[in-house]
Design a protein around this nucleic acid. Structure first.
Lengths: 345, 345
DNA sequence: CTGTTAGCGCGTTCAC
DNA sequence: GTGAACGCGCTAACAG
């Protein structure tokens, strides 16, 4: 017996125990073990006890691959981010993860580097894994990516930008409206030369939308849309620092800068500290994403409250709702935003 | 024909095309399609062409679930983090993801909230998915978790803290040595009353190790280990702010504070700015994790360079090396650290 | 409440 | 270079 056990350990090393063996130990059929695992109430408590005992004794972990193949259902959701490292997505991903975990789903994550080609590959890979749902933190896709998703019929949620014609479902806020609102806010505070800084807009639909929002804001204010007020720069602190210096050297009459992404505004603020320029006395600074940091720097930075966590939570709930057959769910959810006036403007 | 196609679309909705159908279209057997997919060189170029054409025409995506079940191999790695939202892990996760993606593997991520019970559940869930490898950003595990991993025989890497008896493999730096090195560094700079602030050490092995390192550093300096110099606080900017105020109110002779985690040091610096206290004139501030932010604040903050990205890269490479049969790999990799002296001390 | 039969869609193993 | 038979471990759909 111990001999046989030893041999098994060798021959079946790493392959684990099968459901059939649990069934034998508990004196029932494999089907009953399957039921005991997925719906304990559907078997007698006597049977349940013996099955659970056998599972404990053997350290059995059921093979979801086989289960999924047979049932044609998986509980894995695929998430594609423009960049995992980007802290902006952290709150959203955390919220998604929390909702999924509680409801028994798993999360596969990859990143596309904002390149539609990579996104396409990632989608194909996830469909190969037969994910039960897809979440795309981007709204620009290749034709093949769209075809793949449509023909697979996988529930899909786009987040990160509100789109009027989503592939399937969309949960976000309007980048355009938010950028416009901040621009108007700055104008109403009395700023007359409001510059706009964004990430490269080439392949970044959010950055492009934000610029359009800025321009719409200027128009509403009756201010001139001056190209010298608009600038693209790299992300991160150095990007903000560089933009600040470049803009003010080119035009000293600029009295406010609206940094439309990540920590650029903070990079600019630090540069002002180094130069001893008062903020907002010498120059006003506004940001876009509601990073925790913006609230804590001195002076605190005026920004937009973006519903990051809410986006994750609602996205996951919407996806699971679809998977579990809920009806009457919306296809597009606009979570809105809010201008937060602080000390930097 | 179009009728039949339409019916198929309905009856097989969302289930995709099977390999058998590609085979029929290409006039070969399913086996040949399988080969064409996994090892294109093993079929004639003529056959390959017809198979690829059929795949394009149908939008076929092969079912990895079935493939994995049959081959008993998967290409999914499971990663368990103490918290997804924590930006400290971002660089590590990014590096892991990059290495895996390039080599054709996928990443499942979940978080444990630093609770061993949750980690145990996550491990069981991942083993159920038959992940080919496990990465744990934590080195404290329940007994059952260890048993599960051992009996599954899944390659496992522990990161986040250097451990002498890893479950399997370990890639990290020594929290103890790093904390000690910084403490000694501060002492050599002339500070005589060095306080130490950490996250709650109860269930956080890294925080506990860092404190031991601090105490060892004091001993080496010949300074007294005074309990009033040691404090636990919550994470984040407010935690640092609170610690600064509390410590200096209790003992005005403290001349340096070593914040052993995340952004606490920055929270303290901002509080100094608010109060107009010069740093390091009134109080010196040192940090632990090499966050980008620490380099950019004014003054820049002395900290430890922690090999975050390198940890991810090496971990993934070590895991894949094991999976692909490389021999002579180390079980423990100590990536070291470095004290970075900046303007805050 | 429980068991039986028949796959799920691939890869392995052998034969040709 | 290619194909046929079989099995991976589980669940759907019945029957009892």
């Amino acid at each position: 017996m111990s001999n046989e056990a030893a041999r098994q350990r060798v021959t079946r090393k790493g392959n684990g125990v099968r459901m059939q063996e649990i069934a034998a130990l508990a004196g029932v059929s494999a089907m009953t073990v399957s039921r005991a695992l997925r719906d304990p109430d559907s078997v007698s408590s006597d049977t349940l006890g013996r099955v659970q005992a056998a599972i404990r004794d053997t350290g059995y972990v059921s093979n979801q691959l086989a289960g999924s193949l047979s049932s044609r259902r998986t509980n894995v959701v695929g998430l594609i981010l423009p960049g995992i490292q980007n802290s902006l997505y952290a709150a959203t991903v955390q919220a998604i993860s929390d909702v999924l975990r509680i409801r028994g789903y798993h999360l596969m994550i990859t990143d596309s580097g904002l390149r539609p080609r990579n996104e396409e590959e990632a989608i194909a890979a996830f469909l190969g894994q037969r994910v039960c749902g897809l979440m795309l933190h981007n709204t620009t896709h290749t034709t093949r990516a769209k075809t793949l998703i449509r023909s697979a019929g996988v529930p899909t949620i786009e987040i990160g930008n509100l789109v009027t014609q989503p592939l399937d479902m969309c949960v976000s806020y309007s980048s355009f409206a938010a950028a416009k609102a901040m621009t108007v806010h700055l104008g109403r505070l009395g700023y007359r030369r409001i510059a706009f800084v964004s990430l490269p807009r080439q392949e970044n639909d959010r950055a492009a939308e934000r610029m359009l929002g800025y321009q719409a804001g200027l128009k509403e204010l009756g201010q001139k849309d001056d190209p010298t007020l608009i600038m693209e720069t790299q992300s991160g602190f150095p990007g903000g620092q560089h933009a600040l210096i470049t803009l003010l050297e080119a035009d000293a009459t600029i009295d406010a800068i609206f940094f439309s992404a990540d920590v650029m505004a903070v990079g600019a603020l630090f540069e002002c500290q180094r130069r001893g320029w008062p903020v907002p006395g010498r120059i006003a600074i506004a940001s876009f994403d509601d990073l925790d940091l913006l609230r804590h720097v001195v002076p605190s930075i005026t920004t937009l409250r973006i519903p990051r966590q809410e986006t994750g939570r609602r996205s996951a709930e919407l996806l699971l709702g679809r998977l579990e057959g809920e009806t009457g769910q919306p296809r597009i959810v606009d979570l809105g935003f809010e201008v937060i006036q602080r000390d930097s403007t």
